[in-house]
Computed example of a mutant assay.
Amino acid sequence: MLKLIGAVLILFAGTMIGFQQAARFAARPRQIRQLIQALQRLETEIGYGYTPLPEALARSSAHLPEPVSSLLREVKNRLDEADGLTFRECWECSVAAHWPGTAMKAAEQGALIRLGSALGISDRDDQIKHLKLAMGQLKAEEETARDDQARYEKMWKSLGVLIAALVVILIV
């Protein structure tokens, strides 16, 4: 009886690990899409609303889901509390602090870091160009993430169950 309960727990744990990995593959394209929407909102606020950057960040974050909204809020909060920090430093610190909570990879982080070094230091038209460049890079990464999702999501679900079943067979 004890072996049966142990086998069921191992199967359950392996299955959940597989499903958790599959969920990360499913979350990455969704989060990249949300990040693109955030940059589109920033572009609109800066380009058409003539909104200052801290206020544009606050307005954009109000309409976005997590984890993207918390990233933008964090940048705005750091700017408000900035003790001599530049926008780039506030942006990089916020991205670094919030990145582990996302399913995105280093390529998306690199695009955001590059964008942060261009925002806030140039005129409105140049900032819009940099936002569009970052959105283009993120769209390419979104396509890659969708391909990875299609390729690996089912594999991880199956792999979790199969490895757990192998462990149960080896133990019993």
Rank of each mutant, 00 (worst) to 15 (best):
W91H: 05
R114Y: 08
D125W: 07
Y152L: 09
T144E: 13
A97F: 07
C93V: 10
L115Y: 05
D80T: 10
R151Y: 07
E92G: 04
A107H: 05
L79D: 02
A58P: 04
S117I: 07
D126H: 12
Y152D: 03
A82T: 10
S61C: 15
W91L: 06
H98C: 07
D83Q: 09
A96Q: 13
A145T: 00
E153F: 01
C93T: 11
D147P: 10
L119K: 04
E81Q: 12
L112M: 12
D125V: 12
E92Y: 05
L57V: 01
A106Q: 10
A58K: 15
E92P: 03
V95R: 00
W91G: 01
R73T: 10
L138V: 09
S69A: 11
R88L: 03
T86S: 15
S94N: 01
F87T: 05
S94G: 03
P67D: 09
V95W: 00
S61P: 00
Q137N: 10
V95Q: 02
H130S: 13
E81T: 14
V68S: 04
A118H: 04
G116P: 01
D125T: 15
T86C: 07
R151S: 12
Q127F: 06
A62G: 14
G136I: 01
D126Y: 12
S117H: 13
M104Y: 00
E153K: 09
I113H: 08
L138Y: 02
A140D: 14
C93G: 09
Q109N: 03
R151D: 09
N77E: 12
R73L: 11
E153W: 03
S60A: 15
T102H: 04
R88F: 02
C90H: 04
Q137G: 08
I121Y: 13
A111G: 06
H98K: 12
E153R: 10
L57S: 02
A82L: 06
D147V: 14
D147W: 12
I128E: 05
E108H: 01
A82H: 08
L71Y: 05
M135P: 01
D83G: 11
G116A: 04
G136E: 08
A107W: 02
L131E: 01
I128A: 08
A107S: 11
Y152W: 14
A62Q: 14
A134M: 01
Q127N: 13
F87S: 00
P65F: 04
R146Q: 14
D123R: 12
K139Y: 09
R59K: 15
M104I: 03
V75I: 13
F87Q: 00
R146V: 13
G136S: 13
A58Q: 12
A82Y: 08
A103F: 00
R114S: 10
V75P: 03
D125G: 04
L64P: 10
D148T: 07
M104K: 00
K76I: 03
L85A: 14
K132P: 00
D123S: 11
S61Q: 13
A107N: 07
Q149F: 02
E74L: 14
R78V: 05
I128L: 15
L57I: 01
Y152T: 03
D80W: 09
L112R: 00
E141M: 06
E153S: 07
K132S: 05
P65L: 06
E89P: 02
W99Y: 01
A134W: 01
Q127G: 08
F87H: 03
R146F: 07
R114C: 02
L71V: 07
Q149L: 05
E74N: 10
A58L: 15
R114N: 06
E153L: 05
E89M: 06
